[in-house]
């Protein structure tokens, strides 16, 4: 059972997981997890390696579909609609629930094309001018515009690691998502690039529901308003980030965040 803090202010649930289990073959990586992802909040998933936090994150936009042995039980909803129901358009789902990965993975195309690709295939722009505008606005929101505006035709892969990651965030933003999932977005970045990403998360957080998986406790404490602590495939404790990091209720949470775990 998840220990949920009782002082959470009411928030609109953008996504909800009800009794979700995720199996790889016979092994349950996630075991009967229920949680709501509040809209316009940053929710952090923390926990030791192998606790299932990334698996759970990936089940929120059906990234686990690409792993043949993976199987999801229970219900995950987006605005109340079951995302695993038959006939669900997965491409459309992933536009609504975007994702940023651990290692920046820009397309081997120009900076402009990296951003414009999504809006084009989803038909979000009706002409070149509108597409230009989406590209500029997305790069601005990702805090990258000033650095790349004079070289939009350069390859995305020629940027620095931190810039590439912001390019990937801009790419996720460009298709106007409702939820952004981030799987350790800063683990390959230096402290300055990390600070820029965190500042970016802070700036865009009121606009989307953001879920971030991170191994850095400090980062979770800095960027999120809600924190869920995962352990052995379950959410042990869920509450306001400030409470989880100052007065956790569960001993296992306490031991993990204070560095006494195993």
């Amino acid at each position: 059972m998840t220990r949920v803090h009782d002082n959470l202010e009411p928030a609109e649930a953008k996504m909800a997981a009800n009794h979700v289990s995720v199996f790889y073959g016979d092994k349950a990586a996630i075991d009967d997890v229920s949680i709501e992802i509040p809209n316009e909040y940053v929710t952090a998933f923390i926990g030791p390696s192998g606790c299932g936090k990334s698996t759970f994150l990936r089940s929120l936009n059906r990234m686990n579909d690409t792993i043949p042995s993976a199987r999801v039980e229970g219900e995950i909803t987006l605005d109340g609609e079951d995302i695993y129901k038959s006939g669900m358009d997965v491409v459309q789902l992933r536009a609504r629930v975007g994702m940023v990965f651990q290692k920046p993975n820009p397309f081997p195309k120009s900076i402009y094309e990296n951003i414009a690709y999504g809006p084009k295939i989803h038909g979000l722009a009706s002409g070149k001018a509108e597409l230009d505008e989406i590209v500029e606005q997305s790069l601005r929101r990702a805090g990258l515009w000033e650095e790349v505006k004079d070289r939009l035709e350069d390859s995305g892969t020629a940027l620095s690691g931190g810039q590439q990651q912001r390019l990937c965030i801009a790419r996720a933003i460009a298709v106007d998502p409702e939820v952004i999932l981030m799987d350790e977005p800063c683990s390959a970045l230096d402290p300055i690039a990390t600070a820029k990403i965190e500042e970016l998360i802070d700036e865009i957080s009121g606009r989307y529901a953001i879920v971030i998986v991170t191994h850095s406790m400090q980062q979770a404490a800095r960027v999120s308003q809600r924190t869920a602590f995962f352990h052995l495939g379950k959410i042990v404790e869920y509450g306001r980030t400030s409470d989880i990091f100052t007065t956790p209720l569960e001993q296992r949470t306490q031991d993990y965040i204070t560095g006494r775990y195993g």
Partner: peptide
């Protein structure tokens, strides 16, 4: 050490 929770308190 960036103490947390009871350590920080």
């Amino acid at each position: 050490r960036a103490p947390m929770a009871d350590d920080l308190r």
